[in-house]
Design a protein around this nucleic acid. Structure first.
Lengths: 150, 150
DNA sequence: TTTAAATTTTTTAAGCCTAAAGTATTTTTT
DNA sequence: AAAAAATACTTTAGGCTTAAAAAATTTAAA
């Protein structure tokens, strides 16, 4: 009978996580659009590239972000058009390409990232450091078939 | 200086929430597709309608789910095609329509919902009841400009 | 009552997203 | 070396998503 309750409690937790996540994402989306004329997927891609000095293969990018490879193709196409990113041939393997931030892309992201952190800090105002730490620890050992970094 | 650390910790928490949420959503998406030939957005819409006996206006549905109104139109169109949902005229206001589950839709959702709870329960196996409760409480007073129910 | 404003929904254009199929290239097997 | 399998990426078709504009109707104001 307590297993039943536990199951319901976990379901409730999931629904709340989903609600909060969507709300935060929606806020970020709007601010990125109005204040930086960009989108959340673009931001995520640039963040992954920014974190990795030498850029990433399309492959690694899609695994890192947990999105399909075809998806990444489109986002990179548009980032290239905007001059934020460039595709660089990999010597020794003509199938793969490495994707890097341009100088303009790096500068642009750096500015956005600082603001992004402030937005998050404000949105999570209700969470104290010990709570953040505690929840973070729990989440860390949750569903993560692919856990790299983060 | 501790404000700096707190900010970083909140950012880290957000990134983990995002990672876990995406992973869970991705799992749900795949299972709904392979085992019930449906999608997560369809499931979400049906859940909202199932919870409310008399159905909802398009209006309420989009607010409830935190998605744009135009978005709901398309999902409902497809659910109507599949015979899961019907649009019902509202007497006294020819602008609005009420959307209801059909009997088939209700039966179909009921089956999916039971499985859905089992999936979530298994995915969140690492979370004990007291933790679920604790985190749930925290999330409850987080970014929620529109908090109804849930 | 006529006009103006607000409400409810749909349409449109552009981008995001996935699964599956396709193309090119490299590696492994035979 | 030739065939088969694996890898890296793009393309395609269909659905999801949003913001903004449009259409229809109702409500409020003049």
């Amino acid at each position: 009978m307590t297993a039943e309750r536990l199951s319901k409690e976990r379901l409730r937790l999931w629904l709340r996580m989903l609600r909060v996540t969507r709300q935060v994402e929606s806020t970020l989306r709007e601010r990125l659009r109005t204040e930086h004329d960009t989108t959340l997927p673009r931001f995520d891609v640039m963040a992954a590239l920014y974190a990795d000095g030498d850029g990433l293969k399309m492959n690694e990018l899609s695994r890192r972000l947990r999105v399909s490879n075809g998806n990444v193709t489109g986002i990179i196409d548009r980032l290239v058009e905007d001059g934020c990113v460039e595709r660089i041939a990999i010597e020794g393997d003509r199938r793969a390409t490495r994707v890097c931030l341009t100088d303009a892309g790096r500068a642009s992201f750096s500015k956005m990232a600082a603001e992004h952190e402030r937005w998050i800090n404000a949105l999570f105002e209700g969470v104290a450091e010990e709570d953040a730490h505690h929840i973070g620890g729990l989440l860390h050992r949750l569903p993560t078939p692919l856990s790299d970094s983060t």
